[in-house]
């Protein structure tokens, strides 16, 4: 019985995500804040998962970890990079040639997957948080607005206000100018979203079917709409975009 259960744990910069597979079936998911203790966040995810699934921790044979905290989980049976896990998790939902755009808490990734499921190449953002979840957190702080309200505000915007800066700090300076000019809050938030999209489209030509994943996409679907608009075609999003890395890790666990 025990070897049928595989737990994938994506311990990211902002959140820890877990997916429990029983065979091919997802039995449970969990998302917890990563905080300052990756091991504790991973443990909280696992405990939540086993409670939801009505299992004991000993029932899980494979625990594959991924994400920045992948080496900090004492009960992991193996660790794989998030690049490989996102590719695997997305390909499970879209088994064809795809280009994955993952917007994470502190980095962005573009992963090109062949029709066979093999990875052709990948890119990560440069050593700068512009265009990542951390950028939006900074913007929300500057605007004294809850992070969770950004998407709703951006959805109300009708204008085409833009931010020109690469850098998070300079972008915040531009925000001050927009505030001083009396620009409505929804327009400012959408300008920040457009800035995220610009950082994405300059990473790669983004050819073929695009699949977007990550927490930023999960909570801010307006960003997906803006990427679709920029590329001139519909962008695909899995059912649980924040959990594709964890799903990929669980699938890799099933292979082992």
């Amino acid at each position: 019985m025990a070897d049928r259960f595989s737990l994938g744990l994506d311990v990211g910069a902002s959140a820890a995500k877990a997916v429990l597979l029983e065979g091919e079936v997802v039995r449970a998911r969990s998302i917890q804040r990563s905080g300052a203790d990756f091991a504790a966040a991973a443990t909280a995810c696992r405990d939540d998962i086993v409670t939801k699934a009505g299992l004991a921790t000993g029932d899980i044979e494979h625990v594959v970890t991924t994400g920045y905290g992948r080496r900090s989980v004492p009960f992991a049976t193996s660790a794989v990079t998030e690049i490989t896990c996102h590719a695997r998790g997305c390909y499970a939902g879209f088994p064809r040639a795809i280009t994955i755009v993952d917007i994470g808490g502190q980095d962005n990734k573009v992963i090109v997957v062949e029709a066979s499921g093999d990875r052709r190449n990948f890119k990560m953002n440069r050593k700068c948080a512009a265009g990542t979840g951390a950028f939006l957190e900074e913007i929300a702080n500057s605007l004294d607005t809850p992070l969770s309200s950004l998407n709703g505000l951006a959805a109300q915007a009708t204008g085409d206000v833009k931010l020109g800066s690469f850098c998070t700090v300079f972008a915040k300076t531009e925000l001050l100018k927009l505030i001083a000019e009396g620009t409505p809050l929804p327009e400012i938030v959408k300008a920040a979203f457009r800035s995220v999209v610009m950082r994405i489209v300059e990473m790669d030509p983004l050819e073929g079917d695009i699949v977007m994943t990550g927490g930023v996409v999960a909570y801010n679907p307006v960003i997906v709409d803006l990427v679709s608009e920029a590329l001139g075609r519909k962008v695909l999003v899995p059912d649980h975009p924040q959990c594709t890395g964890a799903l990929g890790a669980a699938l890799i666990g099933q292979d082992r």
Binding site: I83, T84, M124, K127
Partner: peptide, 18 residues
């Protein structure tokens, strides 16, 4: 100051996995 250990390590490991 221009180098991120963690990001480089992830990239290298992912490249080898590929």
């Amino acid at each position: 100051r221009c180098y991120s250990d963690e990001q480089a390590k992830t990239q290298i490991e992912a490249f080898v996995e590929q």
